[in-house]
Amino acid sequence: MSNMLEIRGLKKSFGGIDVLDIPELSIEKGGRCALIGANGSGKTTLLRILAGVLAPDEGKVRIMTDKVSYMPQKPYFFDFSVEKNIALAVRDRKNAKARANAALSALGLESIAARRGSSLSGGEAQRMAFARVLAERNELILLDEPTAAADLIGCERMEKALDSLVAESGATLVFATHTPAQALKLAREVIVLDKGRVAERGEVRQLLYSPRSECAKSFLSHWRL
């Protein structure tokens, strides 16, 4: 199968500190990949570069589609209604409203469709941002800790909706998470980042249950799967 994204010689530093150094990495079309690693391991920077929000210092990033959805860790909500906030992200303008409402229904959030985006709580804002991703239905989905601020029920709904979306559309999914259980539910493979480098990559069960790298072992030792 052909690749959805390819990285060659990627380097990024902030204030003289190297935060990302990935000589080569590719993810195939339809792949489901979880990025795990400690805080500051480079997950967010990698996702921001893939989304085109941040430019790399060195190297090349090739994305094979222009239909990319990116959900940042702290999404911004425009001072419109929630429904309009979601509809704004849909390219198909004719069906934008219907798709926004369908996404809200999938997350059980119809009741707050008319509320202002700026009035949402942290958890609600995160679910709304996720509703944008659902409504967009793009070919490449990049999510930065998508359920970090959601409660248990919200988290479960989001995971279920994401699983259905990716299964139905065949989209490529790359997401950062601190929860190995979430990686187990949604991903087929896992990339472990350590100080901006790929420490280990492998099939999700194999890597989570029997990690080889010291970094993955140390990171996963705190979790009971």
């Binding site: 921001r48 989304a51 085109g52 929000v53 222009d66 239909k67 990319v68 959805s69 990116y70 959900m71 940042p72 702290k74 999404p75 911004y76 909500f77 425009f78 704004l88 992200a89 390219r91 941002a129 944008r132 967009e136 793009n138 990049l142």
Partner: peptide, 12 residues
């Protein structure tokens, strides 16, 4: 910065 990140992520 936050608005730009979200807007680019939305493909605006």
């Amino acid at each position: 910065p936050r608005l730009r990140e979200t807007a680019r992520g939305m493909g605006l």
